[in-house]
Design a binder for these strands. Structure first.
Length: 169
DNA sequence: GGCGCCGTCTTCT
DNA sequence: AGAAGACGGCGCC
């Protein structure tokens, strides 16, 4: 098995749709595949916006209530995810990330250990960056071993914000 | 503390 | 085959 189940198999009766949540930091878009979360896009933020973060308008389904919970600091378990497209290595990394409980963090190195490749630290980093569903697979809880933040695919302001809400630091 | 270098591993050209 | 990473460590100002 190399890459498993591409999301874009529109030959079948997979019905995909999108949910949008508008916030003071931009529009968060979530992609649903057969009712399960298959993608999540946050606007890229180079620097922290002046406005304090707030959800302006969200839907009222499971997904957006999860998002609302995330951004209010209350823990809730993520909804079921669709099969994500990625290499075996990436899938392993993502699975390991999914096990980090809210309020806690793991370092890239610890993650590498967790999947049994203690030396693949840097590779773990790039796998994090390819997580198709930030927030749902909490890659913001992965930080550097030196106390640094590491990176975040949609811009570090999000990572800081999320960790603040979970008050992990 | 900060900066540079190198080892290490996966992915993309 | 080579280069590029969301790293980690070590050495050296």
């Amino acid at each position: 098995m190399k890459k498993s189940n591409p999301l874009r198999n529109s030959e079948f009766h997979v019905q995909s749709s999108a949910v949008q949540i508008s916030t003071t930091w931009g529009i968060i878009e979530i992609e649903l595949v057969d009712g399960k979360v298959g993608g999540c896009r946050l606007p890229f933020l180079l620097k922290r916006p002046d406005a304090p973060f707030a959800i302006v308008k969200d839907g009222n389904d499971l997904v957006s209530s999860f998002i609302a919970a995330v951004f209010s600091g209350s823990n809730s378990t993520p909804p079921t995810l669709a099969e994500l497209e990625g290499t075996d290595f990436q899938q392993q990394v993502w699975r390991a990330i999914a096990e980090i409980p809210p309020g806690e963090t793991k370092t890239y190195g610890e993650l590498a250990q967790a999947i049994g490749r203690p030396n693949a630290v840097r590779a773990v980093g790039s796998a994090c960056g390819k997580n198709p569903v930030p927030l749902f697979i909490p890659c913001h809880r992965v930080v550097g071993s030196n106390g640094g933040l590491g990176g975040f695919s949609c811009g570090l302001p999000w990572k800081e914000l999320l960790l603040t809400f979970e008050n992990a630091r």
